[in-house]
Amino acid sequence: MTPTDPAGIRFTHIEKRYGGLFALRRVSLEIAAGECVALAGRNGSGKTTLLRIAAQLVRPSSGDVRFTRANGQSIDGARPRTGYVAHATMVYDDLTAEENLVLFARLQGSAAPAALAERLLSEVGLRERRASLVRTFSRGMRQRVAIARALLQQPQILLLDEPGTGLDAEGLLWLAGTLRELRDAGCTVLMSLHGESEISALATRGVRLDAGSLVADTRDGAELHAIFALAGA
């Protein structure tokens, strides 16, 4: 992975209501360029909503999101290259793994979409199955395609919603390795996680949401553990 031009995210007083329901309540969070942040919290605590707001897929009811440079200045105009792995795979079941990646690479304006897709498919270990329809894949294999799709444009910001879903032990190790490389290359990572794993070990900071409010935020190693310990409570 080549080093990226780092970018951070600044959430200011973010609120998101779904009717009478608060998904997020005045969440303010500044993620510096290059940080690797683990997002903990129970089901329905607002993790996914926060990630979708960061991806600019969801418009907050109030408050605003800005992207920042390494020096903290906000970026105006084009949003930074963002990779997003969600609960849904975000790829087409009726296309092959290769067709999916080539499609999204083309949309993002890649100069050599076929070569890029080929390289990523090798990296995620799906080279042999690249010509099979995604429909025929297992959950873990789909997750690999989903991650490959998110990595297509060498993201400056990577948003991961429980990225380990469906992956086997080997898959988790592979994902942890890939994320470490990305993190070390300066890519900002915000990932929601359930419990500790090889992946949570990468986090340099932990944030906990409860019922839409930010209840804990730490960079301390020991407290990072505590953030996940609470998750079972």
């Binding site: 991806a55 997003y84 849904a88 975000m90 999204f104 949309l107 304006g109």
Partner: peptide, 14 residues
């Protein structure tokens, strides 16, 4: 909507 590919498209296109 099946796989939320609409979001993937929205992220990808200019």
């Amino acid at each position: 909507q099946t796989n939320d590919t609409l979001s993937a498209l929205r992220l990808a296109v200019s």
